[in-house]
Structures are given as structure tokens and as C-alpha cells.
Design a protein around this nucleic acid. Structure first.
Length: 511
DNA sequence: TTGTGTTTTATTGCCTCC
DNA sequence: GGAGGCAATAAAACACAA
């Protein structure tokens, strides 16, 4: 039994055909698939092909997996959203896209009326998003949760996963954002501020609204961003206010807008504002933590980025290619794999990884995230030891991508026909924008900043009693196959056999 | 250890679109 | 007609309780 999980992957490709027996995909494979799925619900033929190469599965398997994955999402959404359709998460999901569409009759038909999300929109976002300057993209990370701040309903199906990932790796310097701008798909340059996300349509997914802590973080982030446009003495740049009458305000009002500044200020570990919910360190906190961790883990490298915007421009990608503050390289990640209880070390763990690395991860991605960074990164990282280093190479872009992801309830499929049609169109679109854009970009993207959630390992199977929320499901899997080279047919960085025991071997190879 | 329930994977059939 | 996708189904793998 043991071998089935860890070893089967080796023969996955080779023996899969001859051996009809069902074989579980390795956690690494699953993560890669999930990650890819986050950005491409409907991968093109080429994508599948490359992906199959990457993870050592057949295209058929890939297709099947994606198919089932979509069904899974759909089913989950149906189960959750249909009953009442009023649950927090479901409701959020429903309005997630802000398309103004309401949830249809719950559970109606196979056409997934759950939402009216236009896959094209989603895909297109990804597409044009890919074109965004990295810096811009990075900015997005911080703005994902700002939807609530702006007071607008988030309608974007921003996947919690993606956003979470982004949150994770917010090593970008806030200063960057100052100059960063969003390029809309129309080519319009949207100023970076709270409204920018509107332009792009990226808003925190609905469920985020329920995440008070996150909101808090989002608020902080927005403030920080907005703060860029504020002068030291208050008014927005370019806006002159008449001087207040003397004593107009007895007690000095703290300019919350400027707080963000403080947040970014290395000198201050925590903005007073962000100290909110303990459980959910604010975004800013994350930044700090990350910074701290990065600093401790990787020297001043990260700090440099943070403190020096100029670096950001050049290293935007790098920033993201260094999940977890550069991640310490995969070797580090896998370092402990041998000694630690790896996923493959025991059946249960394996299962866990299979499930929780992927899904469990989602469950508490946000909640747990903070703890991950909280000085436990190193220890927690090896939870992913089963992940192929290749995969771990997490492409930053992925994170940056607008993960449309929230497919869960929010993104589930529209109508079959519609979706299909859209799918086709999406494909075309992708081709237009650069065929393998998505997949190629993944090449750079494997970021293992996946939430090394220990909880995942600890987490048990999701029980019915546990709220299975769509958004939960959508947690991100950061593990992604690495398409080292973005050029088509480029040599993958992935070891010849991804399916091989990803743990020790691959890790060592990386080193 | 066994039984039960859940999840995941594989297969098949049908439908839609080009 | 072929390709791609969805849904249904079966079966394996696994988790958990008794």
C-alpha cells in the first residue's frame, strides 16, 4: 500500500497505460495541477502537453484530471451554494464577480448557474495580466483585499488561493506601488490606488469580506497605498485644502492614511493600525514578518527590495520567484524531507499531503498563513518536501496572475454551452496573446511559497461538519511545475521524471 | 482488524462546437 | 466527424471509528 502513493508516481507515466489500476497522483503532481488549474481551468492542448511533461502524467490524465477538477468545483459549489445560498461564503461567491448576476436557482442544472462568471473574462484577465509589468502585478498583491476598503463589493473572483499566495509573498516594496500603474486590458493605465483594482476588476472575492482580519489587512494595505498619494501634511497630492482654523480639531487626528506609511517603515515593526486581530496578522504584518524572515533567512536581500524601490523594478519577478523570501531555495525546503515525516513516509501523511497540500491548504490558507511566516517557515516548508523542487519553483507570475481562481462557488462553470464556447474562445484568446503564455509563464512560476501549512499536515480529512466553503477550496497551491524556459518546447527544468520520487532526489538535485 | 464512508482516479457515453 | 467537455459510474486508495 505504502508504495502506491509515493512510488506509483514513478511509473505513473510508464506503467499507467499498461496498468489500468488507479494510481494516485503525487502531491507534487496534484499541486502542480491545482496550481495550473487555478490559472487555467481549460488548458489548451499545448498546455496540457507541457504540463504532462512537467509532471510526468499523460495528457489524457491531465485532461481527465482537469475535467474532474472542474466537476469537483462545480459540485462543491452546488453543495454549498445551493442549500441556502445565503451562507457567507456562498453569498460572497455569488456576488463574487460583481457581474450583477445573482445566483440562479441553486443547484439548478448541470449548467452551473451558480454564477455568471464569464470564463473569458477570467481568462482574459490572466492573459492581459500576464502582460502587466511585474511591478504592477506585485502591487496587486497588496491590493487584493482592498475591495472591502473601497467599500465596493468585490465581485472579482479573485481566488483566495491566489490572493493568498500573493499575500504570502509580498516582498514588494510599497514604494514601488507608488509609481506602479495598472494596465488594463484596454491598455488604459489606471492609477494605482484603491480604484485601480476596480479598473482591473480585481477585487477581493466575496468571502474575503467575511474575513475581518483580512479586511483589516486590506485596509491597511490600501491605506498604505493611498498614503503614497498623500502628503506628509495630509491632503492628497495635488489637492490643496484650506488651512483649518486654529483649534479646529482639539485632538490631533491620526492620519490613518499615513499609517500605511508607517507600516512600510522598517523602523516600525507594526503599524498601530495593523495590530488588529491577533489571529490574522494584517497584510502589513505579513509584510513585516516576511521582511523579517527574509532578512533573517536571506540576509538583506529582501530588505533591500523593500526599502529600495528601484530594486523592485528590476527584481519584481525575482521577488516572486523567491517565495518565502527567496525560499531559501528548494534545497532548503526539502532539506528536512528526509528526516521529517514526509508525505511518503507514511500512508496517512501521504494522504494528507495529497489532500491537504492541495485542499487542506485551501481550507485555512488565510488563517494559517500568518503563522507560517511566523518564524516557522523553515520548519513548515518541509511539509512540502514531497513537492518536486521543480514544482516548487513557483513562478511568480502565477501568483501575480489574477487568479480567477476562485472558482469554487464563484467560479464554477456557467452553462455548459456557454462555458464550452467560452473555453474555446479563451483558447483562441490565449493563442492570440501568446499561445502558451500561461503555461510558459508557469515556467517561472513555481513558487513554493505555498503555504507550508503545517495545519495541512495536521489537518484531517474535511468532514462534513466542517464548513466546506468554496473559497476554502480555492486556496492556492503554490507548487507549480517549473517551466524554466518560456519558449515553447523549451527544456523543462523538471527532472526527467517528475513522477519520480520528488522528495529526496529532486531536492538533492536542486542543491 | 474490519467495516464504513469519503476522496480520487479512470472509464464510458453523450452533447456541443468547429 | 473529430475534439473537447460534462456527467455518471465504477473502483481503488484512504481515513476513521468500532
Amino acid at each position: 500500500m505504502e508504495e502506491s502513493s509515493g512510488v506509483h508516481s514513478e511509473e505513473n507515466k510508464s506503467s499507467m497505460d499498461k496498468d489500468r489500476k488507479r494510481r494516485l497522483k503525487t502531491p507534487a503532481q496534484v499541486m502542480a495541477l491545482e496550481k495550473f488549474y487555478d490559472d487555467h481551468k481549460y488548458p489548451t492542448e499545448e498546455m496540457k502537453s507541457q504540463l504532462s511533461e512537467q509532471i510526468g502524467l499523460t495528457e489524457k490524465q491531465i485532461s481527465g484530471w482537469f475535467c474532474h477538477r472542474r466537476l469537483k468545483d462545480k459540485k462543491l459549489f452546488r453543495d454549498e451554494a445551493c442549500p441556502s445560498g445565503r451562507q457567507d461564503h456562498s453569498g460572497a461567491v455569488i456576488q463574487d464577480r460583481g457581474s450583477g448576476l445573482v445566483q440562479d436557482s441553486c443547484g439548478s442544472t448541470k449548467h452551473g448557474d451558480y454564477r455568471h462568471i464569464d470564463p473569458r473574462e477570467v481568462e482574459s484577465r490572466r492573459l492581459y495580466r500576464n502582460d502587466f509589468p511585474a511591478a504592477d502585478l506585485t502591487y496587486e498583491h497588496a491590493t487584493h483585499y482592498t475591495g472591502t476598503v473601497s467599500g465596493t463589493d468585490n465581485t472579482s473572483s479573485e481566488s483566495s488561493s491566489s490572493s493568498q499566495d500573493r499575500l504570502f509573498c509580498q516582498t514588494e516594496d510599497p514604494d514601488d506601488r507608488e509609481n506602479s500603474r495598472y494596465l488594463t486590458h484596454n491598455g488604459v493605465i489606471a492609477p494605482i490606488n484603491a480604484t485601480s483594482e476596480k479598473v482591473i476588476g480585481y477585487k477581493p472575492s466575496g468571502y474575503l469580506k467575511v474575513k475581518g482580519e483580512i479586511e483589516n489587512a486590506a485596509v491597511t494595505a490600501v491605506k498604505r497605498q493611498l498614503g503614497r498619494h498623500y502628503r506628509e501634511d495630509g491632503p492628497l497630492l495635488g489637492v490643496e485644502f484650506q488651512p483649518l482654523p486654529p483649534g479646529a480639531f482639539e485632538s490631533p487626528i491620526r492620519n490613518t492614511i499615513r499609517e500605511p506609511y508607517y507600516v512600510g517603515n522598517p523602523s516600525l515593526p507594526h503599524s498601530p493600525d495593523i495590530s488588529g486581530p491577533e489571529r490574522q496578522p494584517s497584510l502589513s504584518n505579513d509584510l513585516y514578518i516576511e521582511r523579517e524572515n527574509c532578512g533573517s533567512m536571506h540576509g538583506s536581500d529582501n530588505q533591500d527590495k523593500i526599502s529600495h524601490p528601484q530594486f523592485k523594478q528590476n527584481s519584481t519577478v525575482l521577488n516572486h520567484t523567491k517565495p518565502f523570501c527567496k525560499q531559501n531555495s528548494f534545497s532548503d525546503l526539502y532539506e528536512d524531507s528526509a528526516g521529517e515525516t514526509t508525505v511518503y513516509s507514511n500512508k496517512r501523511n501521504q494522504r494528507m499531503s495529497g489532500k491537504h497540500d492541495v485542499e487542506g491548504m485551501r481550507t485555512d490558507a488565510i488563517a494559517n498563513r500568518h503563522t507560517h511566516y511566523d518564524g516557522k517557515i523553515a520548519s513548515e516548508l518541509h511539509d512540502y518536501d514531497n513537492v518536486s523542487p521543480n514544482i516548487i519553483h513557483m513562478s511568480e507570475k502565477v501568483k501575480l496572475k489574477p487568479s480567477i481562481l476562485i472558482r469554487k462557488p464563484c467560479e464554477s462553470v456557467d452553462t455548459d454551452t456557454e462555458e464550452r464556447g467560452l473555453s474555446m474562445r479563451m483558447k483562441k484568446k490565449e493563442k492570440v496573446n501568446g499561445k502558451l503564455k500561461g503555461i510558459k509563464e508557469y515556467g517561472n512560476q513555481v513558487n513554493l511559497k505555498m503555504h507550508p501549512t503545517k495545519e495541512m499536515m495536521v489537518a484531517k480529512r474535511v468532514r462534513p461538519d466542517l464548513p466546506k466553503t468554496g473559497y476554502v477550496k480555492k486556496a492556492s497551491f503554490t507548487g507549480m511545475p517549473t517551466w524554466k524556459h518560456r519558449s515553447k518546447g523549451s527544456v523543462m527544468e523538471i527532472p526527467s521524471s517528475f513522477s519520480e520520487d520528488e522528495t529526496a532526489e529532486t531536492s538533492s538535485s536542486l542543491e
